[in-house]
């Protein structure tokens, strides 16, 4: 970007075009995630088979016209179960990431803005939780506390939120620290802006891109963790279908009917890749804009 002495146009059209460019892969990721989320939300009203219905004589059938993704060993329709399974995976991951975004973002911004002793304590706790492998924590918490099956979803979400707060808070804290140093924060103080106003109006808009993009990546991680927990049979109990449970159930038939495991696995992979890609691109977009300054 060329700086005119005091003229008008300082940004060339090329940089504008580049920063707003949306590639086909990004579109693919967005469309895939929207369709998946849309299908999961409206699963009850979609004209698909019931996920619990067993279809006689269709055990381990491959994909066909009636059952697009085939059937599992019991004769369940895999297409329907993938969509209903997305409900659990996406709900747990999205709600978990969203809550972690709010809590972790808030904690991170406060720590980064006020610093001092509070920051030191928060950072120490955060660093301590970062050392523990999240999957192990999730599994041992679930096994140890053994909540009733009814409340398993809320319990899962709570565990995931706890696990995601520290990494998000860490990223946000670093970003907040950098932005707090900028003179516009000082300028806001000299204009009489209070801390709330500075945090919400001056810092949040600048921290938000990093926060959101990182939360998407956290969400992708949560989907994997949920899958692993479900694989071990610790997620939402049957009959509710989950991707991890479906992969687990199909495990024994991998030689004769690999699609039973591979189709939900593929969906999990696509979802995680799409979320990661989306998060990365968001961050890139953000960094690009920054570099213009």
């Amino acid at each position: 970007m060329g700086l005119a002495v005091d003229g008008t146009a300082t940004q060339t059209p090329a940089t504008t075009a580049r920063s707003k460019q949306v590639g086909p892969v990004l579109w693919l990721a967005v469309v895939y995630l929207s369709v998946l989320a849309g299908a999961a939300i409206s699963a009850v009203v979609l004209p698909i088979h019931e996920p619990d219905a067993t279809f006689r004589g269709t055990s381990r059938d491959g994909p066909n016209f009636n059952h697009w993704f085939g059937n599992d060993a019991v004769g369940h329709d895999i297409f329907s179960r993938v969509i209903y399974g997305a409900q659990v995976s996406l709900t747990v991951a999205a709600v978990g990431a969203l809550l972690a975004l709010v809590i972790g973002g808030g904690i991170g911004m406060l720590a980064g803005y006020y610093r001092g002793r509070v920051d030191a304590i928060i950072t120490a706790i955060g660093d301590a939780t970062l050392v523990i492998p999240p999957l192990l924590v999730a599994i041992s918490l679930i096994l140890f506390l053994d909540p009733t099956a009814q409340r398993r979803v809320f319990f899962l979400i709570a565990v995931f939120v706890l696990l995601s707060i520290a990494p998000i808070a860490r990223v946000v804290r670093a970003s907040t620290m950098v932005w707090s140093e900028r003179e516009f924060v000082l300028a806001a103080k000299t204009m009489g802006a209070g801390d709330t106003r500075i945090l919400l109006r001056e810092l949040l808009p600048n921290v938000a891109p990093a926060l959101i993009s990182y939360s998407l990546i956290v969400m992708a991680n949560l989907i994997v963790v949920e899958g692993a927990v479900a694989f071990l049979g610790l997620s939402v109990p049957p009959p509710t279908p989950t991707w991890g449970d479906m992969i687990n159930k199909g495990r024994t038939d991998l030689d004769v009917a690999p699609h039973v495991s591979l189709i939900p696995a593929a969906f999990m992979v696509f979802t995680v890749v799409a979320l990661n890609y989306l998060g990365d691109r968001l961050r890139e977009q953000f960094e690009q804009r920054e570099s213009l300054l």
């Binding site: 003179e183 300028a187 001056e202 808009p205 920054e290 300054l293």
Partner: peptide, 15 residues
């Protein structure tokens, strides 16, 4: 009592 800062770009919120 108002103030003008040294780095003009940095003293304006980029967003």
């Amino acid at each position: 009592l108002q103030m003008i800062f040294q780095d003009p770009i940095s003293s304006l919120n980029p967003r």
